[in-house]
Computed example of a mutant assay.
Amino acid sequence: MSKVPLTVRGAENLRAELTRLKQVDRPKVIQAIAEARAHGDLKENAEYHAAREQQGFIEARIKDIESKLSHAQIIDVKSINAGGRVVFGATVDVYEEEEDAEHTFQIVGDDEADIKQGLISVSSPMARALIGKSEGDEVAVQTPNGPRHMEILDVRYE
């Protein structure tokens, strides 16, 4: 499997979630299963079945995170010398003409993306249009709602 880009912050968040799942959630669900077993007949024990289902979700998430971390290419944006160009991990301030508004985006890995926090996936049309451009460049992005025209105001590596 190929390497998947991930920011340092994204990797830290995944490691923190993995630690919580292993040290808090997993023991809690094991205890819930043990308590449910103590209640007797497992065939009609809803608590037991719910706890086992929860255990399955936790174990699947642990495997998912471990896989993502093992295939991650962790990129420290602060160490990149991109010469003012938009690259993976860069924070970009743009002026959007259609909305007459400024927006700030950081280009992150697919698993880190959260548009409400201004984190856009490196594989999104917006990120693909911005990557390689510099401050002052104008960019047109095709979206399902039609084209969006933006001017890059600033590029930072935070």
Rank of each mutant, 00 (worst) to 15 (best):
M1A: 13
S2W: 13
V4E: 10
T7E: 03
R26H: 15
Q31M: 10
A34N: 15
A36I: 08
A36Y: 13
A38M: 07
G40H: 10
L42I: 14
L42V: 11
E44M: 10
E47P: 06
Y48T: 06
Y48W: 15
H49E: 10
A51H: 05
R52Q: 14
R52Y: 15
I62V: 13
K63C: 02
D64H: 12
D64R: 13
S67R: 15
K68N: 09
L69C: 10
H71S: 08
A72Q: 05
I75N: 04
I75P: 07
R85F: 03
A90Y: 02
V94W: 05
E96H: 00
E96N: 02
D100Q: 14
D100I: 06
A101P: 03
T104P: 08
T104L: 04
D111V: 14
E112C: 13
E112H: 11
A113L: 10
Q117G: 14
I120C: 01
S121L: 10
V122Q: 04
V122I: 14
P125C: 02
G132N: 07
E135C: 01
G136D: 07
V139L: 05
V141L: 03
G146A: 11
H149T: 08
E151T: 11
I152F: 08
V155Q: 00
Y157G: 00
Y157C: 00
E158R: 10
